[in-house]
Simulated scan of single mutants.
Amino acid sequence: MNNLYQILLPAEFGFAILVFGLLFFIKAPYGRFLRSGWGPSLPAKWAWFLQEFPAFGTILVLFLYFEAWSSPTAWVFLIIWQVHYFHRTFFYPFQFGSGQKPYPVLLVIFAVFFNLMNGFINGYYLFGKVNYSTDWLLDPRFIVGVAIFLGGYLLNKASDKRLAALKKEGNGDYIIPYGHVFKYVSCPHYLGEILEWTGWAILTWSMPGLAFAVFTFANLAPRAVAHHRWYRQKFENYPANRKALIPFIW
């Protein structure tokens, strides 16, 4: 199992570099960028469920496999991870009214592979490779990381809720979002998720955590830029001072 870990950990950093480069030239074909030519598809809600479930399940299996339930710190890590992925697997796919919209099976396959890989390297490291003492829960890195994770989580969920409400308000059409952090950036939901896994990297102080944070940024930053450009092209009155992802900067 350690040999597999040694292969997959650097592979995730490599995938992050590859994805970051590709997504500036090829927009992932789902949501507003859905287009033909990507093979068979599934209804979006079931596609999201299928691709997110491995992240929820893999780390739970590893927690049980390594009998990590005797460690309070391991329980905290598991709960923090599952706070995100329980919602992302069982609630998020059914939150939007466009759940029947097509979603390419090819993207589901890619996401399943990534979530299995990412869940494995994080779960193996946290529950099988390293033994965190209970004192870690009082370490400043853990406390700061948890604060960043929770801030990102709340930003992500509040932004998703606002976007879902706009979908209903526009009868499925897109509307310019206002208020909240949308005042400053076009994609606060992506910023929130990047903050979540940056916090995770800090609170675990681990290379797998860092790999996940780097990949999250590499995956979402180009899409945030694409969304921002799309808003500007579609709406002539789109706020000129609004940035794509990072308030006042980018």
Rank of each mutant, 00 (worst) to 15 (best):
V61C: 13
W46D: 02
A47H: 01
K45V: 00
F53E: 00
L62M: 07
R35C: 03
L34D: 08
P54R: 12
P40I: 05
P40M: 11
P54W: 11
I59T: 03
P54K: 04
R35S: 14
F49T: 13
P54E: 08
Q51C: 08
A47I: 06
R35M: 00
F33C: 07
L42E: 08
K45A: 07
W38V: 05
T58Q: 00
G39E: 12
V61H: 03
Q51D: 11
L62W: 02
W38K: 08
V61A: 14
L34Y: 15
R35K: 15
K45S: 14
F56I: 10
Q51W: 00
P54M: 04
P54C: 05
G39C: 12
F63S: 02
A47F: 02
W48R: 05
W38A: 14
W38Y: 15
I59F: 07
W38Q: 04
P43V: 11
G39S: 11
K45T: 05
R35E: 15
W48V: 01
P43M: 08
G39W: 11
S36T: 13
F33Q: 11
L42Q: 04
S36D: 15
R35P: 10
W38T: 01
G37T: 06
L42D: 10
S41E: 12
L60E: 02
E52R: 07
A44N: 10
R32C: 00
Q51Y: 01
F33L: 13
G57L: 15
S41T: 15
T58A: 14
Q51R: 03
K45M: 11
L60P: 04
I59D: 00
Q51T: 06
S41L: 03
P40N: 13
R32W: 01
S36L: 09
P43Y: 10
F49M: 09
Q51M: 15
W48N: 04
E52N: 13
L60H: 08
F56L: 15
P40R: 08
G57D: 04
S36R: 15
P43G: 08
I59E: 01
L34C: 01
F56H: 07
A47G: 14
L50T: 08
I59C: 09
R32E: 13
L50V: 13
W38P: 11
L34T: 06
E52I: 13
W38M: 10
A44D: 06
P43L: 06
